[in-house]
C-alpha cells in the first residue's frame, strides 16, 4: 500500500534519514521502532508531506506522492496522529473533530462525527468542552478520532503511548487493534516496543537514519528488540 524507497531527508546539512526503505502492506499493522533521534518522526513527516525528502520516493497505492502538499496527501487517504497529540486546546471537542475533516467537502461530516461519538462515548460526554481540559488519555483518543475524520485508508501514528498511564496505554492499543480489524492500515511509530510488538504484523528497526532490521515479531528475540529500540546497537 505504502512504499518508501530509499529516502534521504535532511534538516539543513544534517541528514536525519540516510536512505530509508520500507513498505506498509494493506490491512496490516506495521511498527517502526528505534531509539530517540533515530529518525522515526522524520520518516512519518516525510510520508505525510510535511518534510520534503532530498532523494528517494514515497508511493501510495501505486501513485507517487513524494513532496506533495500535506492537504493532498490527507485527501488521498493518509491521516496522521501526531506526537504529543497536538489537539487544539482552546477549541471544543466537536470543532477539533471537524478540523480532521478539513480536506473533505462531502456532506457526511456530521454523521461521521456521530459515529465517532458512538465509538468514543467519553468524547460525546465532553463534546462541548475545550480540548485543553481533557485528560491525557482523552486527548489521545481525540487525536485518533480527529485523524479518523479524514476517512483514512492508512493511519500514521507517532508514539500514541507517550506520557500516558499503563492502563490508558492498553486502551489506546486496543483502539488501534480494533481500527485495524475494521480495515484501516496502520503505520505506528513507537518507543514502547513491548506493547507495539503485541499488535504488530511486522516491524522495522530504525537506527541512526537507517533501517537495520525488518521482520515479523517472532523473527528476533524480544529482549534484543527492546534493547535496540531503546538504546540502539551498542557495538
Amino acid at each position: 500500500m505504502l512504499e518508501v524507497n530509499d529516502i534521504v531527508t535532511a534538516y539543513g546539512k544534517i541528514e536525519a534519514l540516510k536512505g530509508v526503505s520500507l513498505s506498509v502492506p494493506e490491512g496490516q499493522i506495521t511498527v517502526l521502532l528505534g531509539p530517540n533521534g533515530a529518525g522515526k518522526t522524520t520518516t512519518l513527516m516525510s510520508v505525510a508531506g510535511l518534510l520534503k525528502p532530498k532523494r528517494g520516493s514515497v508511493t501510495f497505492e501505486g501513485q507517487d506522492i513524494t513532496g506533495r502538499q500535506p492537504g493532498t496527501i490527507v485527501q488521498r487517504g493518509i491521516a496522521l496522529v501526531p506526537e504529543n497529540r497536538l489537539v487544539f486546546p482552546d477549541m471544543n471537542v466537536h470543532d477539533n473533530l471537524k478540523t480532521g475533516a478539513y480536506v473533505r467537502n462531502d456532506n457526511e461530516i456530521e454523521s461521521d462525527i456521530e459515529s465517532i461519538y458512538e465509538r468514543f462515548p467519553r468524547l460525546k460526554e465532553r463534546y462541548h468542552q475545550h480540548a485543553g481540559t481533557l485528560s491525557g488519555g482523552e486527548q489521545q483518543m481525540l487525536a485518533v478520532a480527529r485523524a479518523l475524520m479524514a476517512r483514512p485508508k492508512l493511519m500514521l501514528m507517532d508514539e500514541p503511548s507517550l506520557g500516558l498511564a499503563p492502563m490508558i496505554v492498553e486502551e489506546i492499543f486496543r483502539i488501534i487493534h480494533d481500527l485495524n480489524q475494521e480495515g484501516t492500515s496502520i503505520f505506528l511509530v513507537e518507543q514502547n516496543a513491548n506493547m507495539a510488538l503485541k499488535i504488530a504484523h511486522q516491524f522495522y528497526l530504525l537506527e541512526q537514519g537507517l533501517v537495520t532490521f525488518s521482520g515479523t515479531p517472532g523473527d528476533m528475540d524480544e529482549n534484543e528488540v527492546i534493547q535496540r529500540a531503546y538504546l540502539g546497537t551498542t557495538a
Binding site: 505525510a48 500535506p70 480536506v103
Partner: peptide, 23 residues
C-alpha cells in the same frame, strides 16, 4: 464556516493545522 475553523486551527497550533492538511 470552514474558513473560520482553519483560522482558529492555525491560531492555536500551526503545526497541528498542517497535519490536518490545512494550507
Amino acid at each position: 464556516t470552514r474558513f473560520g475553523l482553519s483560522v482558529r486551527a492555525v491560531s492555536e497550533n500551526p503545526a497541528a493545522a498542517r497535519f490536518m492538511g490545512i494550507n
